[in-house]
Amino acid sequence: MELLVNIVLLILLVATAGALVVVRGLLASTMLTSVYGLLCASFFVTMDAVDVAFTEAAVGAGVSPLLLLLTVAAIGRGEPRPVGALPVLAIVLVPVTAALLIIGTLDMPPFGSPDAPAHTHVAPRYLQLSGEEIGIPNVVTSVLASYRAFDTLGEVLVIFTAGVAVLLILATPGQRGSARPRYVPDNHRDPHTILQIVSRILIPFILLFALYVQFHGEYGPGGGFQAGVIFASAIILYGLLYGLPTVCRVVRPAVVEWLSAVGVLIFGITGVFAMLSGRPFLDYSVFADDPVTAQHIGILVVELGVGITVASVITVIYYAFANQFETAES
């Protein structure tokens, strides 16, 4: 049964990838990207990689198609047919790269093989000792937020840098903070009463669910990254239906920009706090006498930092994109 599901999902995945190349029209491509994300995530689910599937569902199928849609809205829908000579270099280069990648996979151990490098290095230690050292059921969270917290700090910094880069690129010179939306009165010709009411009922529950994912990451799939994305997508939903000026009055762009830095700082200060008491960077044992409790507190704080940064960076990017779009309209 599992084999059948995997085969069908992989065939659909390849078909979607092929269609993405063939289809003209950027809106259609965006829809197919979303389907591709859903398929990837389903595939991760059947492979038991629940946390990865969670992230892929929230980012690959959710937020990134939304940002692509906003981009399409700002630049126009058509994709011009290629003119001129055949891109010979690309046609040669792509099959060669693909062949190299396929040759590379031949060396990989089969899925689930016990002597795969990933299963013989540090993973057995994490799996065996996570229970007594950290004491939370979800080993993924203990690896992400405790054993490998330094790597995670790097990832959060990457996300923060992405937000800063978007602000730098989309801000026009001479006009400070022009990536922030301007407060113009909203003129919807066609108010979406039904959608607004239904979404107004749903948004609090989406936010609540985001908080559940944030603080339940130790016990089930989830954590700061996924929770941040869900939180931001609730804000985006509000913005889509009520207009950019309204959502900016609820969630101030300046505050969000500050918060994206605050999240990283929470993470970093947690590490420095340990150094001040003479321990290694990001050693959580300074928080409590009992090492397991200390780990709990540390993971909670660090995940909170991750969640704040991810949510606010995605909101910042949404504001910057949507502002471009609304400026292009007027």
């Binding site: 199928a61 959710g62 939304l66 989406i206 985006i236 939903l237 889509l240």
Partner: peptide
């Protein structure tokens, strides 16, 4: 959740 938000976005 995501599915609903995407449809609204496209709309």
């Amino acid at each position: 959740l995501i599915n609903y938000i995407s449809v609204i976005g496209v709309l």
